[in-house]
Nucleic acid binder design. Sequence first.
RNA 1: GGGCCUAUAGCUCAGCUUAGGUUAGAGCGCACGCCUGAUAAGCGUGAGGUCGGAGGUUCGAAUCCUCCUAGGCCCA
Length: 935
Amino acid sequence: MDWKDTLNLPKTSFPMKANLVEREPSFLEFWEKEKIYEKMLEKRANAPLYILHDGPPYANGHIHLGTALNKILKDIIVKSKSMAGYKVPYIPGWDCHGLPIELKTEQELGVKRGELPPLVIREACRKYAQRFINIQKEEFKRLGVFAKWNEPYLTMNFEYEASIAREFLRFLETDQIYQRKKPVFWCPNCVTALAEAEVEYAPHKSPSIYVKFPFTEKLKIFIEEKTNIKIDKPGYVLIWTTTPWTLPANLALAMNPEFDYLLVEWDGEYYIVAEGRVSALCAEMNRDLPKILAKIDPKELEGKKAKHPFYDRESLIILGDFVTLDTGTGIVHIAPGHGEEDYHIGLKYGLEIYVPVDQEGRFYEDVPLIGGLNIFKANKVILDILKEKGHLLYQDTIEHSYPHCWRCKKPVIFRAEDQWFISMEAKDLRKKALKSLDQVKFIPSWGRNRIYSMLENRPDWCISRQRVWGVPITVFKCAKCGEILKDYKYYQKIIEIFEKEGCDPWFVKSAEELLPEGTTCPKCGNTTFEKEKDILDVWFDSGVSFAAVLEKRSELSFPADLYLEGSDQHRGWFHSSLLCSVGTRGVPPYKAILTHGFVVDGQGRKMSKSLGNVIHPQDLIKQYGAEIIRLWVSAEDYKDDIKISKEILKRLVEAYRKIRNTFRFLMGNLYDFDPKKNLIPFEKLPEFEQYILYRLSKVIEKVKKAYEEFDFHIVYHEIHRFCVVELSSLIIDINRDYLYCEAPDSFKRRATQTVFYYALDSLVKLMAPILSFTAEDIWQNLPYEKEEISVFLTDFPSYKFELSADKVKNWEKILEIREEILRALEIARKDYKIINTFLEAEVFVKAPEELKGYLENSAFWEYFIMVAKFSLIDEIIETGENEIVCDSEEIKGLKIKIKPTEYKKCERCWQRKPEVGKLENPELCQRCYEVIKNR
RNA sequence: GGGCCUAUAGCUCAGCUUAGGUUAGAGCGCACGCCUGAUAAGCGUGAGGUCGGAGGUUCGAAUCCUCCUAGGCCCA
């Protein structure tokens, strides 16, 4: 007879092979068709809200691993918070305006800036953004992410655009907005500002000149006093520049406070230059080394002045870290209206942002000596003037990399233009923002420091962009007196227009058409107005999302419980959102900030095309399925950089299989188990089963806490470990005999199934936020009645299986002893080959007094370590034949003897038992005999 | 160059901050063996780190301090 047919072998429809790549779409379909996410929200209609506010990705290009990581983390939170009892409405968003899209659009249309009317560009940009929103939306969905995909927030939606303008006006109304000049790349040929991305660097020939700034009388006296040297000949501060035309705008001379400077004598003239440049200068100018007269501390020169080389004014000596010894003289000529660093240091020293150059690159008529001249032509004139004044020490030409306009290919200049700023100080925005951070929880905690120091040091926020794809800076100015209209009433009309038609009208209608009828200037009574041309920085767009989304949608609330983005957003969205919210509401828009690191390769290097180490989520989905990406996200500690490599993926796939197979076994052995009828109460279970359930409830506790603290890698490790240890290698292996061989409805079998049931029921729920596809797959294949149609509609398990501390200790000891015996058995099997399987072994144990209590129950140990015979004996007698004896290394005094059994094998359960051969059916053991008889 | 962060076995993580103290843990992988009634599965045993490097504090440090190196993010 083939006894196999009499066994209760596992039965399940749940396939061993996941086939994730092919099968995942069917689960996506199921979730969508059954509206599972909507049902999750409905089910928790009255539950406390948990608001995870989505930081909008830029609607440009496909998603990459970084965006995938971010959305999956958010999804894990949405699902886990929901299953922990919250209502979690998650509205995905997209950032739609801005230069990159505008540039891409121009590229696709084959045009350059200004060649098409604003509305044509705007329409094309809108289409472009929408295209990528659709693409990304599908890509996010494919990852198994739950969200209100049909009602996302888009920063280009009309209502959103109106919100942006409204928030800007709040700042304007409260006097936190001002206008000031700031240098930008400027193309005098195209008469337009350029963004950094619109600038191409190309070789360019420039004059290279060394210019002498004469000492003022005061400076001369100061130096004489300091050095005890009589300055009886002309003395100069020497600078180097490649843009002579910026000299008319010179207001200062910058020295590095860390460098040493020298007073030197060259051909009967005195100069101040950096010590570290002297020899290089000589080489360049073909001069002998100068006579070094004295060392000068630049810090002492701060605030002193030199004379302008050709104007009757003075130039302030200031200190700046940015001055280097790479080129020049170690002293930099500063024109705050014509350079980025010049501008910043100019602000610091309170210098005027002076721009003597008009939009077409000509000096204004009233500029002495060169008025009306084109700047590049003025270069030569300025050289002549310098020569004539004797203030040109040396002249040459150099070829260097210089910015050019990508449109006309002509060299561009740096030129300050009027820009709009949000003031950090006017209404104490900086102070308030810093203080508000105390109300925010940062995960990890160092995030606070990071945003704090950025906030502490940041300049006023320049919100102007000279572009068209965005929301206009809605400011009207009196055409006559220049008064800025600040009151909201002047903008009521335009906000209404934005809400209905978006911002387009601003670009085509006149100020008078956009203002309420009959508007007059409150200052001068004039009736004509100008409207601002600049648009808002896109960081302002996304920065006000709390107002446009959280406050606007009734299902949401402000402030959000959580913002979750990459650590770069400390300067980005976290930062801009904070300023927007504190500036208008006085509080941060979030209660907590969670940040993750960046995706790097196996060596910890960033992914880049040039390194060739880029991994695309699309490829991973094709090869492994989205589930493995989700598992990867959970397995790695995202607070640090997140590594990914072939090996990591291989490990994850293996771990995935182990988890899946463990579940498959649990399910396969519950085919005839009805929890309503067959569940055995915890108190009645055998102690081993109780112990496993106790371990299970520890895992439940730990995993739930890990979700609460966003430690998802702990979730993964715990679940995986539990599958491997407590389930696979302990109860599954040990109790398999009960499952297969005992009568179907026997206590032992039902007890084991009870443990399986609890493990399956809790783990499938606990893993669902991470292994969403697989959890749903398992849920749909549950062998018993489901409580809900989807696992996501259930709650996290709340089972508590308590065990007294004594019992826990007892079990830990038993497991320790078990390991010792297994070690001995392994020696018998592997080294001495006296047995093939442990089932064939007889085990004799001699134990120290304190351990005897654990070892007295032979029947238990025979079952627990699955051997033919077990006995605790007082003395181990070595016969030396076909046996091994070994001393435990770990437990002192424990001695173990192993020998093969003489018992015959029961053909049904394969256990060796003394009664086999002696019963009515000689092939069976007592237990199997009875099971068969009573079938 | 500045700010913040990270660095524990081949891989992913514990331990380190809320107390610094016996031979640094887990799982995977690997090697070897067993099983063939979870089978492109399962079980067992074993070998692998001196905790990025160098100093220092301490009776004693992976754990505290300093510096260095490598890497990441953000600036300049």
